[in-house]
Design a protein around this nucleic acid. Structure first.
Lengths: 256, 256
DNA sequence: CCAAAAGTGTTTAAAATACACCCATGC
DNA sequence: GCATGGGTGTATTTTAAACACTTTTGG
């Protein structure tokens, strides 16, 4: 199907396929070169950026919708993802942006379910940066990572949603283990610490960090050390997946 | 307007007034005679019980919808209320219940937006039991308090929603002060402790509790003591509203 | 004056924090 | 061999938990 036809169908008949007035937006966090990143889409014609989002199929669990969106934008599957807040300002509507979009796309439509107000549920995900191949959706011209400290202008309240996701991530850090989806399979303790420091945006004590993390039991140290590195070679670690999953559910209650 | 006419209008034309596919359910907690209570509605004709819920006006913030519902069911205004989770099972639909309801009400309708699937946002509220006058809505036959340990059969996934609200309340207890909306203006320390014990469902040490609470600074002790009581008379306390509000926002991070 | 509940304080254990020392490696 | 980053251990402080004693009041 041609792009124009797809878009026309989405705008004209999407409400037969999706739930109305409700959407899902994903904050996809990644970690690369010691920096926390977020995956954003550039709205076609408009130029400003947006969170990867989408709609819920009439017979689909909202969690599955979020996972589907993540999968479509990144190719990544089966990661830790959770809703963190619902955004419901009465003026949350893409009417203007979508009308401009249709005009530029050469599509004429007077009415569309997409001109209505939407309530959106924010989902946050942590993904392995190296496994992601960013793919724009069909209303976007680009899809790429942004450093968390260098976020471009965003549509609607998306900046607000992003900030809330980050705040939530920092809170969660005390109760849930983090890293399994953000780091490669093998990693060193300094790398894990950098991740925590990046998310929390402050320095942590190297020795206390190691003790705290190891006391949770979610890590296993390998006999292998990192090669070809200046100074003393750090050990590699990997997550003990059983205990990691257990800690994800039950919480592990530690503070940093 | 007659009841039948109101109902017919809600079912036939409600979608012009409210957002579709999305609803709000309120878990209204109260505290009375040392027991934690929840306010429930009895679905007309069906007999089983339901959380007070409703829909979001097309131009209304979701938080305001929740407050409006609370106000309508209890007469209570201006209390602490917050969303805690979104429930989105694909089979969340009142189709059967609503069809039966219409049939019993003697109203004929083949189609209605209320037969569709709904995603619902759970809101929890803490209210002053003594100020509440429970009022059923127009699809319910009764509205009353239930002890948290004695919950009747509930429709759909409402029991699940209630459980999640309770879990959430217990979690929040460590970060947010509780009691301002649940207790009368003046109260004694043992009363406040009972409230905490009831919510957490376990005993707390009297002395450590007092120290911990007082260290947060959200309470002010009055010179007055409780009169006409056997044994030593306890002091009255009241909340320092400024510090209470501050702690509500900033969190106060204490464990019990 | 005694039982029962409330106020205040101390003692002990655990946990968070700060800090010191040694080890390995590339330059 | 020395600067740098990494591994391991210990002292200190802070906080939580357990426990004891005194005070007040009604019967």
């Amino acid at each position: 199907m041609s792009w124009e036809k797809e878009i026309r169908q989405l705008f004209a008949e999407g409400h037969e396929k999706f739930l109305r007035n409700i959407s899902v937006d994903c904050i996809i966090f990644g970690f690369h070169e010691n920096e926390l990143k977020v995956l954003l889409l550039q709205a076609k014609y408009a130029g400003s950026w947006a969170l990867p989002g989408g709609f819920i199929l009439k017979d689909e669990h909202m969690d599955d919708a979020a996972k589907r969106i993540l999968q479509e934008r990144t190719g990544v599957d089966d990661v830790y993802m959770q809703q963190f807040y619902v955004f419901s300002e009465p003026d949350r509507s893409n009417k203007k942006i979508n009308k401009l979009f249709l005009k530029n796309a050469g599509i004429e439509l007077e009415e569309s379910w997409l001109f209505e107000r939407f309530i959106t549920v924010g989902y946050s995900a942590l993904v392995d940066f190296s496994k992601v191949l960013p793919v724009p959706d069909n209303i976007s011209s680009d899809c790429k990572w942004f450093n968390i400290h260098d976020i471009p202008g965003m549509i609607l309240d998306h900046r607000n949603i992003l900030d809330k996701a980050l705040e939530n991530l920092r809170m969660q850090l005390n109760y849930h283990p983090v890293g399994y989806n953000l780091l490669p399979e093998k990693f060193t303790m300094p790398e894990l610490q950098k991740l925590y420091e990046t998310i929390l945006d402050r320095k942590l004590d190297r020795r206390n960090f190691q003790r705290k993390i190891m006391s949770t039991g979610i890590l296993k140290r390998l006999d292998e050390t990192k090669k070809g590195v200046a100074h003393k070679a750090p050990y590699y670690y990997k997550f003990d997946l059983r205990k990691y999953q257990k800690a994800l559910k039950g919480g592990m209650g530690f503070e940093l």
